[in-house]
Design a protein around this nucleic acid. Structure first.
Length: 552
RNA sequence: GUCCUCGUAGCUCAGCUGGAUAGAGCUCACGCCUUCUAAGCGUGUGGUCAAGAGUUCGAAUCUCUUCGAGGACACCA
């Protein structure tokens, strides 16, 4: 048994039923760990919540069912009803230490839970246009989304990681034109660089590369054929670069979905969407364009699906894209978009709703801006100037571990400053190193030749120190912590968890010696604690894609 | 103007969907290495939860108003 909140929940639930004949659910009955450990190991506020229903004082309600709870939960060493109406539970220390063996046995699987119940979820994120390098904003998006996927996988969801490539629109024409201009430039010829084109270094590099490979053959080629070639070549190379950068960043996509895919076979999938919408009376023609009555689904204005020049608005193939996700067997979709796409959320949700999909089909998390800061002043980033800080530069500068930790530790709903200098430091100012150092210390104890090797035992009853108990409690709660972070899609809960856990360990390390030569039994039990702690910490770090180094 | 996301210690942020005396880290001051890694630990200083009102046993958390920051309001993608 490792999940005490669960057993306390059911014990109290049946006690309430038996004594007061009231059914309580997770909303009424919350089991939590008090901030102040003196209050107890666990507590619940259910008596206060029941006060209104039962027309009795919380204290009276609590006292009234105290005995029944004790009957339902014999493992409790004490149950108290206190002040405003909290019911506090205390457990024997041995209850917590019994988890050590199962944590060690579970190994990399520790933390797994089935809260996702096998639900199939398709997460689409990063999805930057293949017209430039990934920069710091994408890095925040990438780290956060990947952590969400890892959390959901650990929680029993069936996750597909997908990247949607906008390779059909005007910006790809710009990419092609920009490459052609640079290609001409390579040979000392004139070709107008479009005003809204891409000016960055990587475009010049690709153009030079094409020139080296193909020679001058495109200078006099058919313009249409030439543009098609440079478009395709540009997208292919930029995507390869993006994929490489993501791998470096420890992000791996299962699926790359091209916007052009929806234009194949004479836009079959898109037409199906448009036909369905038309059949439902959700569209109308005006000024030569085809409109979607999105205002009927909460949007503040209707949206164009097909422009008056006959081409499709960006929205239209993207609706087909989302429909296709569901058709592939993913009833739950998660998208991570930049905050500048916020008006787009209503639009997409309106479209899905109009097509008859349930409200909870699509969840969108918006990623707020990130400012790179050094010595208190902003380091500007811009795709156009070529001075952008790319994800690769960031990884080489501060390291993948620090970059991922920093981005994941702050909620994406708030704008953040990324302190480059702090991320670079290798001391206690930097939380990443603080956490990794704890793992190294654990590993070092466990592999020290002067300390006897650990062997599993039936009971760890000598682990009675306050910090030992605290660590054991936290380890017990880890799977629940993972489930909660996955459900709320907030990986920053995991960095918080890691920091409090690791703080306790560092403190323990300084106050208590694991190796007590005179007392092999105690030494072995403490080694068990450290072993289980290292398993838990490694798995926690892995959830956010940060390495657990043996040595530092 | 309308709509989003926010406003918590000097700084960076938590606050578990309404609970106990609002928490960490950094900074600053003073201590701790003959013993498993001092990339560490311990002690102390610091608050009108932006402001005001409301909802109730109880509000940093929910509602409204005001102020402030950033973003979005295309037949662009």
């Amino acid at each position: 048994m490792s999940d005490f909140t669960r057993t306390i929940f059911t014990a109290v639930q049946t006690a309430v039923k038996n004594v007061y004949d009231v059914d309580v659910d997770e909303k009424m009955l919350v089991v939590e760990t008090p901030k102040d450990p003196r209050m107890g190991d666990y507590s619940t506020s259910v008596a206060m919540r029941l006060a209104r229903v039962l027309h009795k004082s919380p204290m009276e309600i609590g006292e009234g069912m105290k005995e029944e709870i004790a009957k339902q939960f014999p493992a409790a060493s004490s149950i108290e009803v206190v002040k405003p109406g909290f019911i506090n539970f205390r457990l024997n220390h041995s209850s917590f230490s019994s988890a050590i063996n199962s944590i060690i046995d579970a190994g990399d699987d520790y933390g797994k839970n089935d809260s996702g119940k096998g639900d199939r979820v398709l997460v689409e994120w990063v999805s930057a246009n293949p017209t430039g390098d990934l920069h710091c904003g994408h890095a925040r998006n990438a780290a956060w989304g990947d952590a969400i996927c890892r959390l959901m996988e650990k929680s029993g969801y069936d996750v597909l990681r997908e990247y949607y490539i906008n390779d059909a629109g005007n910006q790809i024409v710009m990419l092609g034109e920009s490459l052609i201009a640079r290609y001409f430039e390579h040979f000392g010829k004139e070709y107008p660089l479009p005003e809204n084109g891409y000016h960055a270094r990587d475009i010049i590099d690709i153009a030079n590369d094409i020139a080296a490979k193909d020679g001058e053959k495109w200078l006099d080629a058919d313009p249409k054929e030439r543009l098609d070639y440079f478009k395709a070549e540009g997208v292919r190379r930029k995507l390869k670069a993006i994929e490489d950068d993501l791998e470096l960043y420890r992000v791996h996509m299962d699926s790359w979905m091209h916007e052009t895919f929806f234009y194949e076979n004479n836009s079959e999938r898109i037409r199906k969407v448009l036909d369905t919408m038309q059949a439902k009376g959700l569209t109308y023609e005006k000024d030569g364009a085809l409109w979607f009555r999105s205002t009927e689904y909460g949007d503040d204005k209707d949206r164009v699906l097909r422009k008056s020049d006959g081409t499709l608005a960006y929205l239209t193939p993207d609706i087909a894209n989302h429909v296709y996700k569901v058709e592939r067997g993913y009833p739950h979709l998660v998208d991570l978009w930049g905050a500048d796409h916020h008006s787009y959320v209503v639009r997409m949700k309106a479209a899905l709703k109009a097509l008859g999909y349930p409200d909870d089909t699509l969840s969108v998390d918006l990623i707020q801006m990130v400012r790179m800061v050094e010595d208190g002043k902003e380091v500007k980033m811009s795709k156009r100037t070529g001075n952008a800080i790319t994800i690769r530069e960031l990884c080489e500068d501060v390291g993948v571990d620090a970059a991922r930790w920093f981005f994941v530790s702050k909620d994406v709903s708030t704008q953040m400053d990324f302190d480059m200098k702090l991320a670079r430091t290798k001391d206690n100012n930097n939380p990443v190193y603080y956490a990794q150092y704890a793992y190294s210390r654990m590993h070092s104890i466990l592999t020290n030749p002067d300390i006897p090797a650990f062997h599993k035992v039936d009971s760890y009853d000598r682990l009675t120190d306050e910090k030992e108990t605290l660590m054991l409690k936290m380890m017990n709660e880890f799977p629940r912590e993972v489930a909660s972070a996955a459900a709320s899609r907030k990986p920053n809960k995991i960095t918080e968890y890691i920091l409090t856990f690791v703080r306790t360990f560092h403190s323990y390390y300084n106050s208590t010696r694991v190796n007590v030569p005179d007392d092999p039994e105690l030494t072995n039990q403490r080694l068990g604690l450290v072993k289980a702690a290292s398993v838990t910490l490694k798995n926690a770090l892995d959830l956010i894609g940060v390495a657990a180094p043996d040595k530092m």
